[in-house]
């Protein structure tokens, strides 16, 4: 199997807190990898390091064999890593479809002059990208909201929009930080359906989630973090039985 993402000894320190400690993680192409662990165990920090939002204290990250450590977040995004955020982050002054179009930036070849003069090239590209964005919205079932502002959307659809926006990059790897958190029942079912569809399409994912049922259903391989360290990994069925994992969760206030 082909390795898509690999971290080697990734470490992140905030003052006295070591949020990630010597993390070696591998994500194979076409698989869905889960990241679980108690609150504050460093899951978001790891996602942020991979996506380039946070610079690593030490260690390296490889994507498609290339060392991407220290790249800016936007360069990493363009090289094929899309992401969503634990707390949904949308552009609230742009409409739903424009939110998606933002991430299509690098599929435009029109230059400033084309834009200012609104040349045929610019109009054609705008049309093509708009169609593409609408198709994406359709895939996530929110095409009817295209002209609205994100603030007018219910929570579940905002999350769907955020995923659509990440997919607009045409990423090879999708990082999802608690995609199902805070969802109502039907919204949750929608998200699970979306995940399964993405899996079918062969999109590689690394996702953080607290809902174990969710992990069981969509994840092929899971890493367990505790106090910034990987304490266990494997298929979920095995990890679930791991004594270290049970202890870590019992220490916190969550249960498997």
């Amino acid at each position: 199997m082909q390795v898509l993402l690999e971290t080697k000894g990734l470490t992140k320190q905030f003052g006295g807190i070591i949020a990630n400690k010597n993390i070696n993680l591998t994500v194979n192409k076409g698989t869905t990898t889960g990241l679980i662990g108690p609150n504050g165990s460093g899951k978001t920090t790891l996602i942020n390091q991979v996506s380039g939002e946070l610079p690593a204290t030490s260690g390296r990250t490889f994507f498609k064999g290339e060392d991407i450590t220290g790249y800016s977040a936007n360069k990493i995004a363009r090289s094929g890593i899309g992401r969503t955020f634990q707390r949904i982050r949308l552009f609230h002054r742009l409409t739903v479809v424009e939110n998606v179009l933002v991430a299509r930036r690098h599929f435009f070849s029109a230059n400033v002059l084309d834009i200012v003069l609104n040349t045929r090239r610019n109009r054609r590209e705008e049309r093509e990208q708009l169609e593409h964005a609408m198709t994406l919205l359709q895939r996530l079932g929110i095409e009817s909201e295209a002209g609205k502002l994100p603030t007018a959307l219910p929570y579940g659809k905002r999350r769907a929009l955020e995923i659509a926006r990440a997919l607009a990059l045409e990423p090879e790897l999708l990082l999802l930080d608690e995609p199902a958190a805070g969802m109502a029942k039907e919204e949750y079912a929608d998200i699970v359906r979306i995940m399964e569809r993405l899996k079918e399409q062969g999109i590689t994912m690394l996702l953080v989630e607290h809902t174990m049922e969710f992990i069981r259903r969509v994840v092929d391989w899971v890493y367990v973090l505790n106090f910034g360290e990987v304490i266990s990994q494997g298929v979920f069925g095995d990890v679930e039985q791991d004594e270290n994992v049970i202890k870590a969760y019992l220490g916190g206030d969550e249960t498997l």
């Binding site: 996506s51 380039g52 939002e53 800016s72 977040a73 936007n74 360069k75 995004a77 363009r78 899309g82 992401r83 955020f85 982050r89 949308l90 552009f91 609230h92 002054r93 742009l94 424009e98 179009l101 933002v102 991430a103 299509r104 930036r105 690098h106 435009f108 029109a110 400033v112 834009i115 610019n122 705008e126 990208q129 926006r165 990440a166 607009a168 990059l169």
Partner: peptide, 23 residues
Amino acid sequence: SYLGRAMFAINDDETAAESCGIS
């Protein structure tokens, strides 16, 4: 255009804009 959307995007949320490949 994409330029205008990039402006509005960084105005709204720089981190999210970066995650969309916007410098």
